[in-house]
Nucleic acid binder design. Structure first.
Length: 619
RNA sequence: GGUCCCGUAGCUCAAUGGAUAGAGCAACUGCCUUCUAAGCAGUAGGUUACUGGUUCGACCCCAGUCGGGAUCACCA
């Protein structure tokens, strides 16, 4: 609550503490005064909670409130006008209404901060440091298309990138592409066996889906072989271990690791197909990266670190030759870092990749956006990096998010129970277009423009739906009704923006009639004018933007920004309903309200941008 | 079994230890001759899984119980 802090510390909290001392009410037992926003149903904007201080002072809250009465008028703004408009005691809560002059100034400040562009502009506090942050997200396997789980990952990563960047941090977006391993060989093998030389182009299938199809073929064949062997009398475990097609896949992995030319060529060819498909999906989703790491290149990197750890004596080698790290002093178990045959594991690769990133671009902080099923893995990874003596290990953070469930339960790739990312985007676009069809004002739109707008609205629904949920929590995604366009949704916020855009267009068109004031000029609005509650609520919302972004950054939670955008849109809709703007006859009031609209528009656009959501001019 | 996470309206989600636990969806009632009705206003819906404890004050912190999930591979 940065904005509130400024108010409190400079204008209220410090003088209040001084007053307590002067009144000899301050003692060791004194509880810190606590401030909060006044709830909407009461008059006022700022609330002092009196329970604590009253107890510390040894009086009842009611008495303390009475004692404070002469104190409030002593608080003034720089120009000498009063800061406090009203004082109301409700229970132990002292609700303060701040003067309209205060809010007028507050608003002007907020305006300057945001009206140009938010990119890197919100970090206006000199005390706040700007960091170099490596942000990892996505990191898919190259054997199947992206699904809903990846979508949550990508949206979180992308939004965190936008939020951190807006605060002035330098952010390097990275992913590590899991482009090697037995799972990749499985789809390669299936293509070799069943593909008959088909390619994505010739079969008119998007590359990642094309390859994913063969991965599914592999699984089917594998299952059939297992069933056959079980029928022949083997246990399921034996059958799975000895399935011929699995043997072939393992052989292929061996060949890959020995750089067998034909296998490597096949691998390159099929991965290229997948990347082509991924590019289309990322592009459509609006996601990008600054640097890619490939597991095929990094999987060996960790071995040197393991050697180093052995030399340092922080790792140990067992009699079979496997290398372990003992993390029991940190409440974790022992973890194997290198197989007895000397080959590397997932964590070996992660150690190497982390070190490589620090060397490539020395960061202050590294954030891994990875599902919470890997919570333990990251505890182990960070602890192991610390054992190796890397100071930056303590500045690594696992942005853990919950799985996305379907109404029928958990998604299962192997059972085909997944929501495909491309299909999902198609679906939301179609839904949005259907909704647009009901609107007469969009009938004149060209086909391409129409499709583009439908995608913007559909994606807004999808992104907002996912980002408004606390990342740490599991969420349920019901394809039937999850993508609403009404109520607490992305399109709701977009709609408020489009309404303003449309209104301001008229202002531009009639500039001679409605001269919008230069924002840098002080308002000449009558200071004694009493404001409508819809006007004040709107300005109160303005002041929450930067606190919301800061909170989102601190908690790695874009939901705070989504909350802000929704609250602002709600406040605007009420204002729009209650207060005439262009139709207002009083010129000063009209200018004032046009200004409110402009500021609302900037903040809606900027907060949507932080969520990776477009703000259409009309809809 | 050990460790960690979760349990809030019919559904999906909110709530820095503070006020009468809030939104949206679904249901019901009003409001388009007026700047975009993807909107606004209203009704109804709760023993915050349960039991104790700490506190002036607990959805929030602590202990336990029940229910759900994740993880504990020489997998990724």
């Amino acid at each position: 609550m940065i904005e509130w802090n400024e108010v409190l510390v400079q204008r209220l909290d410090a003088p209040l503490r001084t007053w307590f001392v002067e009144q000899s009410l301050w003692s060791d037992r004194m509880v810190e005064p606590s401030w909060q926003e006044t709830r909407k149903e009461f008059e006022g904007e700022l609330t002092l909670v009196l329970f604590g201080p009253a107890k510390g002072a040894g009086v009842k809250p009611e008495l303390l409130a009475a004692m404070l009465e002469p104190f409030w008028p002593t608080l003034t703004l720089e120009n000498g006008s009063p800061l406090i408009r009203s004082v109301r005691l409700v229970g132990g809560f002292l609700n303060l209404g701040l003067s309209y002059e205060y809010w007028r100034q507050r608003w002007s400040l907020g305006y300057d901060l945001t009206h140009v562009s938010i990119h890197g502009n919100l970090n206006h506090e000199a005390t706040r440091e700007r960091s170099k942050i490596v942000l990892e997200y996505s990191s898919p396997n190259t054997n199947k298309p992206l699904h809903l789980g990846h979508v949550r990952n990508n949206l979180l990563g992308d939004s965190m990138y936008r939020i951190l960047r807006s605060l002035g941090h330098e952010v390097m977006r990275v992913q590590v592409v899991n482009d090697r391993g037995i799972h990749i060989c499985k789809s390669m093998l299936a293509w070799q066996k069943f593909g008959n030389g088909a390619e994505p182009n010739t079969s008119n299938v998007k590359g990642d889906h094309f390859v994913g199809h063969f991965y599914v073929l592999y699984e089917k064949t594998f299952q059939a072989q297992v069933e056959e062997a079980v029928a022949a009398g083997l246990t399921r475990e034996e059958a799975e271990a000895s399935a011929p097609i699995l043997q072939e896949a393992r052989t292929m992995l061996q060949q890959w690791e020995h750089s067998d030319e034909s296998v490597v060529n096949l691998w390159k060819k099929m991965n290229a197909w997948v990347y082509e498909g991924f590019d289309i999906t990322y592009e459509r989703l609006g996601i990008g990266f600054d640097r890619n790491y490939y597991e095929s290149q990094t999987y060996l990197l960790g071995k040197n670190l393991v050697e180093q750890g052995l030399v340092q004596g922080v790792f140990r080698k067992d009699e079979k030759g496997a290398v372990w790290v003992d993390l029991q002093d940190r409440g974790l178990d022992s973890k194997i870092l290198l197989r007895s045959d000397g080959t590397s594991l997932y964590i070996t690769q992660d150690l190497g990749t982390a070190d490589q990133r620090q060397k490539d671009w020395p960061f202050d902080q590294m954030i891994y956006t990875v599902a919470d099923e890997q919570n333990y893995h990251f505890k182990v990874l960070f602890a192991t990096l610390e054992k190796l003596g890397f100071a930056w290990a303590s500045r690594c953070y696992h942005l853990s998010y919950g799985m996305v469930d379907l109404p029928s339960g958990r998604m299962k790739s192997r059972e085909g129970k997944v929501v495909d990312a491309d299909d999902l985007m198609d679906e939301v676009q179609v839904l949005a277009e259907a909704k647009m069809g009901e609107s007469e004002k969009l009938q004149s739109m060209g086909m391409d423009e129409r499709k583009e707008l439908a995608l913007q609205i559909g994606l807004a629904a999808l992104k907002f739906f996912i980002l408004k949920v606390d990342p740490g929590k599991r969420m349920t995604f019901n394809p039937e009704d999850s993508i609403d366009m009404q109520g607490h949704t992305g399109p709701f916020v977009q709609y408020a923006h489009a309404r303003i855009a449309s209104m301001l267009d008229r202002v531009e068109g009639q500039e001679k009639v409605f001269q919008v004031k230069d924002e840098s000029e002080p308002w000449t609005l009558d200071p004694n004018r009493s404001w409508l509650s819809a006007e004040l609520d709107l300005i109160r919302q303005f002041s929450q933007f930067i606190p919301a972004v800061n909170l989102a950054a601190e908690n790695h939670n874009p939901a705070h920004v989504a909350d802000f955008a929704y609250s602002l849109a709600t406040a605007f809709n009420r204002f729009y309903h209650d207060c005439p703007v262009l139709q207002e006859s009083n010129a000063e009031t009209r200018y004032f309200r046009i200004g409110l609209c402009k500021q609302t528009r900037f903040l809606l656009r900027d907060s949507l941008d932080l969520l990776g959501i477009k703000a259409p001019e009309r809809m």
